[in-house]
Design a protein around this nucleic acid. Structure first.
Lengths: 200, 200, 200, 200
DNA sequence: CATGAATGAGCGTTCATTCAT
DNA sequence: TATGAATGAACGCTCATTCAT
């Protein structure tokens, strides 16, 4: 994780600072201090404060997208794929808690500044969920009447909110595997005890 | 929606402004202008900017909690209860899109300031989900191995993220009923086509 | 000291508040609360905040001037007159410590607003000292080469600065009589042990 | 008087502005404009507005204390020492009229904020007078029954009040030497024509 | 006369950004 | 490239003053 060049040093410093203080409360000087560069140096690599946030977001989410894509490339079973996605997401968020925070911030708070999110890494990321679902519907193992675009949001929202606890004051006592198991159980088979009997 | 007294006039103005611009970008003068009062008047009713946000959050979520509790009081079936909760939530968010935004902001961004969220309206609200699940587990219709505290977060996250679309640039073309149906299907019976056969 | 009418109730409240917090730090609402009237009521009796200060100053100093004049009217000996003035001043300041403060404030801080002090109560007051000195010079008991206008300032300054201690954090342990004795000794005979030998 | 670095440029600008308008009426932007720096620059050198006042006070009084100490170090005669102190004080106040004002303000108005004045430059300064008096009492030329702590206040008060005239609207027509002579005459030998005969 | 809710001008302070070195 | 001192626009908040009741 040790950054060799200034750009990535600033990115990881910003990730840390944004996560800790939030985008608006974070000061450029905080990031500079964390990255051990001068305030002015930051402006040699980024246009402005918001550009840093966007870069953090795109680059870090980009890495996750890349890694997730790679992990999924060798898997064909949509059920297994969702499992891989889930575990990979939770582990990434647990490993880089700061990033989990930045995603929260970027997604909710600052999308008021940049409105168009169609062509970004985040869309790519949730798109992976949608693709898994569609694939499952094509192979017939997922219900055909599930709307992939709603389901991708619902599942990402569930994952994201569950991840939020790691950064809250009270630490969760569940392991990644336990949480993944719970989420997959709910999402795949539902919480009903005998689901088959409920939709006669 | 027309507020008769200054306090509620400011609350609804703030809800609107916070939703539109976000907490940090919103200026007190924006809220004052929206509420058609002088800047100083706001400080006759609230201690500071953050107090306004907190009040918006607590009061509005409080109303929803109250309404939800009332709606659920006459229902005993945990499945129906979840349905009521879902529809009520989505309708509330659709009706007051600004509030949906403020919840997002408050929950993700500003909880860095106020850490302790155990005794607030939001906890009450997600607690309702947990209670529904526990009740269902007691009556045997919900799976006993589902952890209510994970499930409440997961389901709230799903609802919340799905609601977010109403305020994003691209409008959703689904009705409340369609979305509720999708979410309930997923959460109750899962997305697997024949879920019972998948856990032999 | 109990004020029967609003005007004097406000005056004494203002004296108290100005003394405690200083003119600029004092709020109109502080004075109103102390006087047990509404904020707006103050403006029925005074034009503005500064007018209150000026009124406090003029009225209270006026009272002292009046009292001092009366006390001095039955005395012809310039030495005794200075003694009377000294004791009277110290007693007034000790009795109404708030007023001592207000004089300090008014004299040093706010004379930047109202420049002309020739026709005010304070001039009258220090004028009394000048008159005592002149009278003493006419009767030959005070040195003829003392400039009355310098001496009046010097003596008032000495009195005033010595009075300041009553309001400072550390309380003085001297009585009015002790201090008066010290000041009169210094001012009348000097601090030199054998003063006569020093001006041969 | 031209300051080479920002810190001292701001100090002298602040001294000027505080003297002219008073601490509370002075705006940071006034000081900045006077010092020909941006408003924000001031906060690179001082914590807040009050810190500027305190710095002005401590630094400038510190200089005077230092200079006075030096001047007195080569003198043994308590009478000459008081003369040196007096002339030095009056000249310093005449030279830097602004400082005289700031001392007035700091001493009377703002000591409501900082209560403890025991360990500051001002105490050091009046302490010099006390020491001169004590020395004179030891050598027997000053009256033994004079209380040094009262006398130091009285004499400082006299000096200070006399200095105030230079900044008032009406200019004094006395020279430093004349005023010093008057004060020393009064304080050393008293105003009584034949003081020895008055205390038989 | 009395009230106190409402007003809005004013200011201390912060901090993203710039630029001379 | 890198620095960090300097900038100045921006804003939350205060409080003297007003005025409808």
């Amino acid at each position: 994780m040790k950054a060799e060049n200034k750009h990535s040093k600033i990115i990881s410093a910003a990730t840390k600072v944004f996560a800790k203080k939030g985008f608006f409360t974070a000061r450029i000087s905080d990031i500079a201090k964390e990255a051990k560069v001068a305030d002015g140096t930051i402006y040699l690599y980024f246009n402005n404060k918001y550009d840093i946030l966007l870069s953090v977001f795109e680059e870090e989410v980009g890495k996750i997208v890349e890694k997730t894509d790679k992990l999924l490339s060798s898997e064909e079973d949509p059920k297994k794929m969702l499992e891989i996605f889930t575990i990979q997401h939770l582990m990434a968020m647990k490993k880089n808690k700061n990033l989990a925070e930045v995603i929260q911030i970027e997604l909710r708070q600052t999308n008021k500044v940049i409105k168009d999110y169609r062509n970004n890494k985040f869309s790519e990321y949730t798109g992976i969920i949608a693709n898994i679902i569609k694939k499952g519907q094509e192979t017939g193992i997922y219900k055909a009447d599930i709307k992939a675009d709603i389901a991708k949001r619902a599942y990402f929202g569930a994952l994201d909110e569950v991840s939020r606890v790691w950064n809250a004051s009270l630490e969760t006592h569940y392991t990644v595997e336990e949480i993944a198991d719970q989420l997959l159980t709910m999402f795949l088979t539902g919480i009903l005890h005998k689901p088959a009997e409920n939709t006669p």
